[in-house]
């Protein structure tokens, strides 16, 4: 494979069968390795696509400032693309975000505005919306509501999966902005009407939810429940256990949200076996484990110990 620039190398990631974690010959589990993107996560796809569509629309012009509420992968992807394309970028992130994340964003030249820890990402979204109102010349791509986020997966992730595995029966991914599930899900449903689209949503401990106001909850504008077949809430314990299992059984070093997606994928696989159905289940490895190494979950002696290390942290 040869590309004319690093940005051109986004996507076309490997799809690998997991022989040891697949429960039966007739029920196969496949991992889409999105950590193989230029900045190491699936977010390179929507970040680049949102920027390029905004350029086409004339919303983003040379010298512009990009603004985005993000504490992680999207910011890193946008910052890399912004550097190569010559834009200034400002990321709004909760003040309790890890040092690695800040380093990675700073490394690619992003400016960071901290939002209060209380309320987490919901608050970062609100602060970013306020900043956008104060700076009408800044361009907020807004991953939670930008149709081009889902559009990236409709145009690339979905077609890649279908091309590599025409017999796909299930697609499982983490639920955050919902862009991956909405975009790839819509594409696969159009091509394979019976395909099941399954979301794995992170469930944190009380420390993270805190005293969140139920009247000010947050549902991404992109979210369309009609695309999904089911939606699972995956606890930190299950996500960590599966992340470690993926490493020990199949040698794949993935981030913790991937463990949540794998948990939903294996639950789905178990149901298919019980029903005597043939299945090809694809789940998304959203990123590698590098950014989460400092949590210690990969080397902890036991899953219990690893879960304790993660207590109170956002992991997806």
């Amino acid at each position: 494979m040869r590309f004319d620039s690093p940005l051109a190398a986004v996507g076309n990631t490997p799809l690998v069968r997991l022989p040891r974690l697949s429960p039966a010959e007739s029920v196969r589990v496949w991992a889409k390795l999105e950590d193989r993107n230029p900045t190491g996560s699936i977010k390179d796809r929507p970040a680049l696509f949102m920027i390029e569509q905004a350029e086409k629309d004339g919303r983003l012009t040379p010298g512009c400032t990009i603004l985005e509420p993000t504490s992680g992968n999207t910011g890193i992807s946008l910052a890399m693309a912004a550097r190569l394309k010559g834009y200034r970028i400002v990321c709004v992130m909760p003040e309790n975000t890890s040092a690695e994340r800040r380093e990675l964003l700073a490394m690619w030249g992003a400016e960071i505005i901290s939002s209060p820890a209380a309320g987490g990402s919901n608050t970062a979204v609100r602060v970013a919306k306020e900043l956008a109102a104060e700076h009408p010349d800044w361009v907020m791509l807004y991953q939670y509501g930008n149709p081009d986020n889902a559009g990236a997966h409709y145009a690339t992730t979905g077609p890649e999966i279908l091309a590599d595995l025409p017999s796909v029966t299930h697609f499982v991914a983490g639920l955050g902005t919902t862009g991956t599930l909405m975009g790839a899900g819509r594409y696969l449903r159009e091509q394979r009407p019976g395909v099941k689209i399954i979301a794995a949503e992170p469930r944190y401990d009380d420390l993270v939810y805190g005293l969140r106001n139920l009247d000010e909850g947050f549902v991404p504008e992109l979210y369309d429940a009609a695309v999904l077949t089911s939606r699972y809430s995956v606890s930190s314990t299950d996500a960590v256990a599966r992340t470690r299992e993926l490493l020990s059984e199949e040698g794949i070093f993935a981030g913790i949200s991937t463990g949540a997606a794998l948990h939903a994928a294996l639950g789905t696989a178990r149901k298919a076996v019980a029903a005597g159905e043939e299945a090809d289940i694809v789940f998304v490895v959203a990123d590698g484990g590098w950014k989460y190494l400092s949590t210690g979950v990969y080397t902890a002696a036991s899953t219990e110990e690893a879960v304790a290390l993660l207590h109170g942290q956002l992991w997806a």
Partner: peptide
């Protein structure tokens, strides 16, 4: 049965 508030993703 688990009841939870809807929240934005963590590290998006």
């Amino acid at each position: 049965v688990t009841i939870l508030p809807a929240v934005a993703g963590g590290m998006r």
